[in-house]
């Protein structure tokens, strides 16, 4: 078995006293994982917990080294997340957000600039996000998830709202980054094109927990 990219230890998430997620122990190996579950099963909550967006009890370990308790900043540097329905302050431009991500997450600016061109974001990057369509916003959110030098990228419903050319670009990016050692956890209600990316395994969210399938 390949090395674990992320380990969840006694991870519990309650919301106002109501348990939403309870994962006693889970090790996810490096690779590309498809996170599946019904609507409302808690897929997005899982992703937000792993990305450090919402508080939880327990511990998350990245590559058995970086702990959510001991080194939350490094964990955030190494885990990137793209929301299913991204929401940003209306007055910020794509460039504002990209600069913020590059300034905090680091990474290869030239490479990300190339992706800006490939995804066709260059034409509207200086406009406020309030003028973006849902597809443009989604592309920007996906671009931001590829900034820095992440070890794990979480993509929540990445295939929705973007055009077919962008879907192909996304598959290429996932493949390229995976070849460099980056792991992915992806939720999608649409099946993946297995000729374009090879899935390592599936993760099932049900009954308030996550299991490997």
């Amino acid at each position: 078995m390949s090395d674990s990219v992320i380990t969840l230890r006694d991870v519990k998430k309650n919301y106002q006293g109501i348990p939403i997620l309870d994962v006693p122990s889970l090790e996810i190996p490096a690779g590309i994982h498809w996170l599946q579950g019904q609507n409302g099963a808690g897929k997005t909550t899982c992703m937000k917990v792993i990305a450090g967006l919402i508080p939880f009890s327990g511990e998350i370990l990245l590559q058995q080294q970086v702990s959510s308790k001991k080194d939350p900043v490094t964990l955030r540097r190494l885990i990137n997340y793209a929301e299913a329905e991204p929401l940003f302050p209306s007055f910020l431009t794509g460039r504002d957000l990209l600069s913020l991500y590059i300034n905090t997450k680091g990474g290869d600016k030239d490479w990300i600039t190339d992706i800006v061109d490939i995804l066709g974001i260059q034409g509207y990057i200086d406009n406020p996000v309030s003028s973006y369509s849902s597809g443009m916003l989604k592309k920007l959110s996906l671009l931001l998830a590829f900034t820095g030098n992440p070890a794990l990228i979480l993509l929540d419903e990445p295939l929705i709202t973007i055009d077919t050319a962008a879907v192909d670009t996304l598959y290429n990016l996932i493949r390229e980054k995976n070849n460099e050692g980056v792991s992915f956890i992806i939720t999608s209600h649409q099946p993946f094109d297995e000729q374009k990316i090879t899935l390592t395994g599936k993760l099932i969210v049900a009954d308030k927990t996550i299991t490997r399938n």
Binding site: G52, L75, R77, E83, F88, P89
Partner: peptide
């Protein structure tokens, strides 16, 4: 609007 910043290091 700033929940995305929680994912930044």
């Amino acid at each position: 609007y700033l929940s995305f910043m929680e994912n930044l290091p």
